[in-house]
Design a protein around this nucleic acid. Structure first.
Lengths: 345, 345
DNA sequence: TTGTAAGCGTTATCAC
DNA sequence: GTGATAACGCTTACAA
C-alpha cells in the first residue's frame, strides 16, 4: 500500500505538501497540486485514516450498540442512524450484544473506548436492570453517549419514540369507535417500552372512565404466539371483550389468528389495534390498525444529538442542554376497526 | 485520556513493559505485571487500538456494505455477519448504500480502504448492472472481498443462499400436492435473486412436464401490493390457476389478500407458497407455506471465508480455493397447502 | 509556497 | 525480565 512518502517522492514534493493537497488546509500551487493529484491517481493511494485520527484525536467514527437487529424496531433504528451518521461524515461501528448481559456491556464499552469512537448510540432497549451500570460508570472516561428506548434520567441523553402517547392514541382510537371493554396484551413486563405502552392504554381508559383492571391484561413476549394465547385467555376472562390493543403488531397478528379460530369477526365482534406498523400489517387479514413510529427518524435524531455532544466536548464547551424529544407516533387506521374512514396520518 | 506512558511512569516501568503486560507476547514478572494491571485499573486506561493497528498493519475490522437493512433479508444477513465477526475478534463497520449507485460504490470502497479494514463483505444484492465495477477494479489494491447474493464469477468469492433450489423445492411441494396450474409472481426482473427463484420454478415445472409459459408469470416488486395485483392479473389470464409461488413472503401476503377478496379459498381453491420465512408468515391467514433460508448462517459463512482470505493474504499465501457454498434452503410447510402434515425441516 | 522535523500512541528490536 | 529507541503513516509548526 502506497503512503504519503511514496506519493511525495514520485511527485517531487514533500510529504507535507501532499497532506496539504489532501486536506486543503494550506494553499498549494495549482501546478504542484495537479501533479500530486495525478500521482495519487496513478498509485491508487488512499490516505490512512487511522494515522490521521491519531493526530486529529478524532476518528470520525461512532458506534451503535444494539440488540435484536433481526427484528423490525432495531433494524429501522440502525438504518436511520447509519444514514444520518453518513450525512455527518461518521463511519458507523455496529456492535450487537445480548439484551441482558452485564459482562458484554462492559466489554463493549471498553472495546469502543479503545477504538477511539467519537461517540456511542446505545440502542439496546431498557429491560429489567440492564441500565444499572450507568450508576457506577464514569462518563468522563467515555465518549459521549446517547441512549435510545430508555426511561429518562437526569444527566443522561436519551431519545425515544412516544411509546406511551402512541399506546394512548391506539386505545383512544378504539374508544372513539365505541368500544368499552378493551383488553391489552403487553410485551414482557420488564421491558420499559412494554411498560410505557401499557401506561398509555391505562391512561386512555381512565380518561374515558372505562374499566381498567388487571384481568384485562395479558403479559406476552412480543411474539405472535403469545398474542394468540393471550386473546384466548382474555376471552375466557371476559366474554364481553370487544377490543384488544396489542403491544406490537406481531402479537396483534396472533390475536387475529385466535379471533378467526374462535369465530369472532374482526372488527365487527372484536376490534384489534397493534403497535409498530410493520411493513406487512396493512396486508394482514383484516388489515391491521396500528401505531406508526418513525424509528428511522428517531435514530437520525439520536445521531444529531450525539454529534452536538461530540462537537461540544471537542470545543471544551459544556454539553448542550437536554431538550424534550419530539417524535410523535401516529395511528395508522385500517379496516381493523369498525366505521373507520381513512388514515389519520 | 491516559496513555501507555502515563501507566508506565505511574507503575515505575517502561512503556514497553506495559505493552508486554497487555499483549502477553513477552514474559513479565508476576509482581510488575500485577502492579501495571492495578495502575491500568486506577487510571481507567484503554489502549489506543488505532495506534496499535498502525504498527500491526491490521485493524481487526471488517466492513459490511449493505442495502435495505430495514428489510428482512439484509437484517438477517448483517446479524449473522456481526455475530461471526465478533467471534473472530473483528469489529464491524456498517456502510449502507443505495442499491444502484456507482458513485456511492466507489466512494464506499475508497473510504473503507482508507480506514484500513482487513476485509469487506459486499452484501448489496446484484441488480441490473450494479456489479459492472468489478471489471475495472484492481483487487490487489483493495482488501479481500466476499460477496453475497450475486451470480458466481471466476475469481470472485461469493456466498449465497440456494435461491434456485429453494424455489424448486417450493414449486415441487405444490406439484406433489397435485397442483398443475402453477403461477409465479417474481421480484423485479433485474434482481439476480428474482431470476434465480424464477429459474427454480421453471425447472420444477419442466421436470414435472407441467405448463410453464410467460403468461403464468407476473413481475412484482417484492412488496405485498404487487402480490395482490399480480394474483388478480394471473387469475384473469388463467381461470384454472390452482397454485401460486410468490418470490417472497410479502408478495405471498398480497396474494392471500387478493384470494380472499376474490372469494378463492386458500388452500382448497388456490395453494400459495412464499419465500423467506418471515417471522410472521406462520401466523398469516392461513399460515403460509414458505421457504426458509438461514441467512444468518450465510452471513456467518461469508465471515469465515473472508477471514481465511485475510489470513492467507497476511501470510503471503495464495488465496484459498473457492468451494461450492452449501447453504440449503428448506420448505416450511404450513396450512397454506392442501393435505400437508407437518414441516419438513 | 514548500521543506524539515517533531509527535500522535502503540509495538518491536535490540541491548543489558 | 526490563528499558531505550525506532518505527507505523500522517499532520503541523516552524523555517526557508
Amino acid at each position: 500500500m502506497p503512503t504519503v512518502k511514496d506519493v511525495a517522492s514520485r511527485a517531487h514534493v514533500s510529504p507535507g505538501t501532499v497532506s496539504n493537497v489532501l486536506t486543503g488546509k494550506r494553499p498549494v500551487a495549482p501546478a504542484t497540486r495537479e501533479r500530486v493529484l495525478q500521482v495519487i491517481e496513478e498509485l491508487g493511494y488512499h490516505p490512512n485514516i487511522l494515522a490521521r485520527s491519531l493526530i486529529n484525536r478524532r476518528s470520525d467514527t461512532i458506534a451503535v450498540v444494539a440488540s435484536g437487529l433481526e427484528y423490525f424496531g432495531p433494524s429501522q433504528a440502525v438504518t436511520g442512524i447509519e444514514r444520518e451518521a453518513d450525512r455527518h461524515g461518521y463511519s458507523v461501528i455496529l456492535e450487537l450484544i445480548p439484551w441482558l448481559d452485564r459482562g458484554q456491556t462492559n466489554r463493549a464499552l471498553a472495546m469502543l473506548a479503545g477504538r477511539q469512537v467519537d461517540g456511542i448510540i446505545w440502542a439496546v432497549p431498557e429491560i429489567s436492570d440492564n441500565r444499572d451500570w450507568l450508576n457506577d460508570e464514569d462518563f468522563d472516561r467515555l465518549p459521549p453517549i446517547v441512549f435510545m428506548s430508555m426511561a429518562p434520567r437526569p444527566g443522561i441523553y436519551a431519545v425515544a419514540a412516544g411509546n406511551r402517547h402512541g399506546a394512548w392514541l391506539a386505545t383512544q382510537h378504539l374508544i372513539e369507535r365505541g368500544r368499552t371493554r378493551i383488553g391489552h396484551i403487553t410485551g414482557p413486563a420488564d421491558w420499559w417500552e412494554a411498560q410505557e405502552r401499557r401506561a398509555g392504554w391505562e391512561e386512555a381508559l381512565a380518561e374515558a372512565g372505562l374499566p381498567c383492571e388487571e384481568s384485562q391484561v395479558f403479559v406476552g413476549d412480543w411474539y405472535a404466539s403469545s398474542g394468540e394465547i393471550g386473546l384466548n385467555e382474555l376471552l375466557r376472562r371476559h366474554r364481553d371483550l370487544d377490543a384488544v390493543f396489542a403491544g406490537n403488531d406481531q402479537m396483534a397478528l396472533g390475536v387475529l389468528r385466535a379471533a378467526h379460530l374462535a369465530g369472532r369477526r374482526v372488527p365487527q365482534d372484536l376490534a384489534v389495534a397493534g403497535f409498530d406498523n410493520l411493513h406487512e400489517s396493512a396486508y394482514f387479514w383484516p388489515p391491521l390498525t396500528t401505531v406508526n413510529q418513525d424509528l428511522k427518524a428517531v435514530g437520525g435524531e439520536a445521531v444529531r444529538r450525539l454529534n452536538s455532544l461530540i462537537e461540544a466536548r471537542l470545543a471544551g464547551e459544556p454539553a448542550p442542554a437536554l431538550e424534550v424529544n419530539s417524535h410523535r407516533p401516529e395511528v395508522r387506521a385500517r379496516g381493523g376497526v369498525v366505521g373507520l374512514a381513512r388514515p389519520r396520518a
